[in-house]
Structure formats: structure tokens, C-alpha cells
Design a protein around this nucleic acid. Structure first.
Lengths: 338, 338
DNA sequence: GAGAGCGACTATAGCGCTCTAGGGAAGTGG
DNA sequence: CCACTTCCCTAGAGCGCTATAGTCGCTCTC
């Protein structure tokens, strides 16, 4: 009865076919870039589609097709890094004509819930961005790719930046600058935070500074957490480190500003290194030396491998680890001469 | 109970119908809670569905149905508040058997792009969470609801918290405590920031403190922006305000910690009020007086009104404005006696 | 000249569901 | 006993697309 005023009938494949004077089957062939159409009709169909402003209906397409070309994406509260990952996923998926179906993990919506509602779309592969869990349910039941951390389960594809390599670069950079008392600001007790902490410890051992290992724990990975940790460090009244390697850029920047307020010069008195190389680190006011993660690249690799897997191609290694670079900026400098 | 839902052929309505010994039509009636099934068969079908672990295929359902029961959601980089909105939307939609289709707005994926990919799902209503734009495209073409800010266009439903009322509460609370020099920390130049700033100015006028209006601009709405602004304020070397009303909790908390480091006691020397009443404000270490927004409530109202609109019911007012409460905590106190 | 092969196209059967039209059985009223 | 409901229920036609199995001219080969 109440006719929806906004609903002009949608343009369908049949409309396009009619206008181009071909069958819907042929129009379909053209639209999905399948072989079997002559150049002439290909052009005609494409022109008709363009004229009518035709866009295929994802629901119908994925229903009818054997492979829906749908990637489910599970994400948590998106910090900047996660958000850029999503951005990258969109770009990579679009490039291949795949669609993304997002599902959020919130406090009141756990993994099972988010998954089952995603499942109602019948995706053919799943990407998890977070929150980092050690054992994703569904591992092995569906092609699953985890971006950003390591899981032990087999049958899970992993794409991540090497924390080991990143922290190695950071520590070595500092050592080369003459630092020895290098502390780590750990960002909470999440899987990633632990991995980076362990990587820091390993890196310190590598350069023979086991005995200098010093870990300062933050409650979480936000700026406020970094501030509190930095303040706690100053209050400790022990000998200060000459360099700090933080879990991420937020914490590093927050610590930096606390130090500045206490008259501690960066990098004169203390050097600081972040992680992610986010926009924050790159901003001129902060100008933070940081281990670079390239979310677009991680996303691209993840999609590439999902597509490969869905097409039945064999995938070489289950875990792809990108070796990050260290972006050196003005927050690191020579160790103060004792 | 449930089989492995992700391996092998999926359970369809036909399977459920067969097991229950009824037609798919009847099974469908039961599954979508339509009238026209006896209690006995209703129970039988439900049991069969449960046994098989059946979940309807959203694609097929929304394809076949006249109203897909799909709500498109456009969101930007989600801060805590946005994320809680999404959470609330899920809850409200689920309650009514509707589905959400999320689409992210990123730097490289503008409104048009995000919309057209959403459009491929043929949603029947759209919710925008951000970024706040003054004139959403698609206004009037599709039932559109904007959560959290005001737009002038007709044909757009609006659900938001009253900034006017919120800042009025904040200013009045401070005035009652004896404050006169009340400044505002403006969070960037977004639509919401401007609205809150104007609301602050109006509130000051209301209490006859026009001449005390003082606005401190932050570059954005993050904690770091708040820190910088607070530091700039202290550096100004002018008479300090005795109270600060911030754009949001993040900025307020950041300012608070800067003040603390400068030996300025909160609330002894200066009172601070935030906005959102986020988890941050509620945390015991921060314990910030804040204007409360209830994202779940905003989300619920939005969904309610979308459903109403799609069912052809008339909707009373185009704009719903929730009057927030002020949550008083320990960051506000009597003005220091001059 | 009969078959075979090939490229370009179409007919049509689904995909998993919704929903209208209608069927049969039981209940009601004259 | 025959309408006429009412209540359950089912058949079957789509929704917009994909994909398989053709059809239809051709050219090529022996």
C-alpha cells in the first residue's frame, strides 16, 4: 500500500540485454568478463550498461554463482592502523572484482555472533583484523586469514609484519647511536604486545645487552596509557634509560610529551622509537622515528592469497612475514655521554 | 546439535521443510514469523531448523523479499563513540530481524564509492555515522538517517544528542560552582565541533557571561590535540580560566593530565568537563565530569524510525534530539576564591 | 558432401528464499 | 444440503543473476 517513493525500479541485467539487443546470458558473459563474446557485442553491452547506469546486484550474483566472491571481514574497534587495513582490503578486493562484507566485534557482540551473521551472507573466505585471538574459531573450517599477528593453528593463513625484525632494527639503530640502557614500553598484555615485548628481549640479547633489558608496562595501547607509564617511569627515581622503544606510535608520542614536560630533551637526553609509522609519527610536530608497517601491502597480500586459495591454487607458505623498515626521524639521536 | 556449517552443502529451507514434513512455503512462514501456521507445525519446523543448525541465507531472503530488511551503514574511522553506535545498531537491528551492511569511508574511498558498493546490496535504508557532512548525497533518494549531528536537508532523519542542552548543563553546573572564566576546548573544525562551540557560546550568553567567552582551538579531536591545546593555553601567559568545557572526553582527559603536570590541581585550581561520558570519563583514574551521550539509545531510535518508515508508517518529527544528562564526577568543584 | 570443429550466441535450469493464489478440511448458518 | 467462512497449508512463479547445455552458421578436412 505505502509505495516506497524512492524505489524507481532498479536496472537489471535484462534491461541491459534488451537495450543491447542480446540475451541476458550474453550480457552476463560480458559483465563478468567471461570469454565467449565478440568484441562487437561486448562493446554494445558495455555501452548499454553504462547508459542505464547498471550495477550488478551482489546478492543475486553471489547467490547464483558457485563462488560468491565475497570476503568476510571481522574487525574490532579500529584504531588508525586497522582502519587503513580495511581501506587496503577494499582497494585490493575491488581490483579483483570481489566484495567485502564487514562485521564488527564489539563488547556485546562476540566472535560467534559476528561470525554467524557474516555467515548468513555465505562468504567464501574470512579475514580477521582483530581483536587478536590466539585460536580463532573456524580455523580449518573456512579459508581464514589473520592480519597482523601470529597464530599457531594450522589451516590459518597469516600475513603480518615481522615484530622480530622491526624491534631488531630499532634496537640496533639505538645501539649504533651509542645507547645501552634501552627500555621497552609494552602496550598492554594483548597477543601483539607480548610478541613485540619478546621481540625486544630477543633483540637486546642479540646485541649482547641482556642485562639491560627493562620493560615498562602500559595498561593498554592508547595515548593515555603511554602517558601514565612514562610518568611512572620518571617517578621511579631509578636511573633513567637513554632510549625507549615503544609498542606503538601512540604510546611513544605520549611518552615523548610527558618527557618534554619534565624538561627531558628528546633526543638529547632520551631517544624514542615508535611502531607503525602512522600519520602521527610522520606529523612534523611529533616527527617520531618508527618501525614502518604498510597496511595497504598487508591487505593486498591477504586478498591475493585468499583469491588464490579460492581458485584452488596452492599457496606457498602459510605465514607471510613482511620485513619492515625503520623510518628514522628526529626523535632518535646519539646517546648522551655519561 | 548443529552440523559443521562451513563444510559441505549448506542447510537450506528445503532441508528444514523436509525434515519437518511440511512444504518450504510453510517453513518459510514459520522462519519469518509470519502468521498462518499452526502451533504444532510451528514447533515442528523450529525444532527441525534447530536440529539442522539452519540459518536463513540473507542474500536469498533479501532478493526474494520485497523489503530486503537490510540497513546500510556508512561509518568513518571509528572512535569509541562511533564504535558503540555500531554496537547499538547491531543490537537494535537484530532485535527486529533486520540485517546491517557496513561500508567504511576511508581516505581513498569516498562517499560515492562507499555508497555504490553498499548499493549493490540493495539496502532499503541508510544510516550515516560519519564523517559528519553537511549535505549527504542521496538525501531524499533513499530513507536516510544521520546519527549524531544536524543537517539542514529535508528528507533526512536525524537522531542526535542535544549539544545545546549538554553545554548548557555543563556551563550552568560550573556557574553554580562559582565559576565565571569558563573556556571551551574546541575539537577541530568539523560540523560537530562547530555545533558544540556555538552551543557553548549560547550557553555562556544564557548565563550572562558573554564577555567571558573564550575558545581554545584544538587541531583535531584526539588526545594529542587536547594536550597541545592545553599546553598552548598555559604558555599563553594570560589569566587562566578556572574551568574548561571540552569538545569530548579525550580532549578533556588530555588537558587534565597536562594541567596535572604543571602543578595545576583539578578541580582545586581548575574544573574540567568532557563530552560523551565514554569509558575513559568513567574510569576511576580519570573520573571526569561529562555530558552523557547514550549511543545505544541513539542507535535504537534510529533503527526504530527506519523500520517505521520502511513499513510505511508516518514518522512524527524528522529530527529527534535527546536531552543528555550531566554526569558529575570529581573533575569539577567550586571555583577557586580569587 | 558428410562429418567435424569452432566461435558466437541463446534457452533454460537453477541459487535459496518470499509471497500470491488457491486448495482442502473443518466450522457456521440458513 | 449447500453456500460461505476461516484456518492451514501447498504449488509455483518469481527475485536478478550464473552456468550448463545446447543451437546456428560457418569453415575446414578427407
Amino acid at each position: 500500500m505505502a509505495e516506497q517513493p524512492w524505489s524507481g525500479r532498479r536496472v537489471t541485467l535484462a534491461d541491459v540485454a534488451k537495450r543491447a539487443g542480446v540475451s541476458t546470458a550474453l550480457a552476463s558473459i560480458v559483465m563478468r568478463e567471461a570469454p565467449g563474446a565478440s568484441e562487437a557485442s561486448r562493446r554494445r553491452v558495455l555501452a548499454a550498461a553504462e547508459d542505464l547506469g547498471y550495477r550488478p546486484d551482489v546478492r543475486a550474483r553471489s547467490l547464483a554463482s558457485l563462488k560468491p566472491h565475497l570476503i568476510g571481514v571481522l574487525f574490532g574497534r579500529a584504531g588508525r592502523f586497522h582502519f587503513e587495513l580495511i581501506d587496503g582490503l577494499y582497494a585490493a578486493a575491488e581490483e579483483r572484482g570481489w566484495e567485502l562484507v564487514l562485521s564488527a566485534l564489539t563488547s556485546s557482540r562476540d566472535e560467534a555472533r559476528a561470525l554467524s551473521s557474516l555467515n548468513d551472507f555465505r562468504f567464501d573466505a574470512l579475514v580477521m583484523l582483530g581483536p587478536p585471538v590466539a585460536e580463532p574459531m573456524l580455523a580449518g573450517q573456512v579459508p581464514l586469514t589473520v592480519i597482523g599477528w601470529h597464530v599457531d593453528q594450522p589451516d590459518v593463513d597469516i600475513v603480518r609484519t615481522s615484530d622480530e625484525h622491526g624491534l631488531n632494527l630499532a634496537v640496533r639503530h639505538l645501539v649504533e647511536l651509542g645507547h645501552r640502557r634501552i627500555a621497552h614500553l609494552q602496550g598492554g598484555d594483548g597477543l601483539v604486545a607480548i610478541a613485540r615485548r619478546d621481540a625486544y628481549v630477543a633483540a637486546m640479547r642479540d646485541v649482547g645487552l641482556d642485562h639491560e633489558v627493562r620493560i615498562i608496562e602500559c595498561a593498554g595501547e592508547d595515548q593515555l596509557d603511554g602517558q601514565r607509564a612514562a610518568r611512572a617511569l620518571l617517578d621511579e627515581n631509578t636511573e633513567l634509560p637513554t632510549a625507549l622503544v615503544a609498542f606503538n606510535d601512540d604510546i611513544a608520542a605520549a611518552a615523548m610529551s610527558v618527557l618534554a614536560q619534565h624538561g627531558i630533551d628528546v633526543p638529547g637526553d632520551m631517544s624514542i622509537i615508535g611502531f607503525d609509522d602512522s600519520a602521527l609519527a610522520r606529523s612534523p610536530e611529533v616527527d617520531l622515528t618508527s618501525v614502518q608497517q604498510v597496511p595497504q601491502e598487508l591487505a593486498r597480500l591477504a586478498v591475493e592469497r585468499i583469491v588464490a586459495r579460492c581458485e584452488g591454487r596452492k599457496v606457498a607458505d602459510r605465514e607471510m612475514v613482511l620485513e619492515p623498515e625503520l623510518k628514522v626521524r628526529s626523535s632518535t639521536g646519539p646517546a648522551p655521554s655519561a
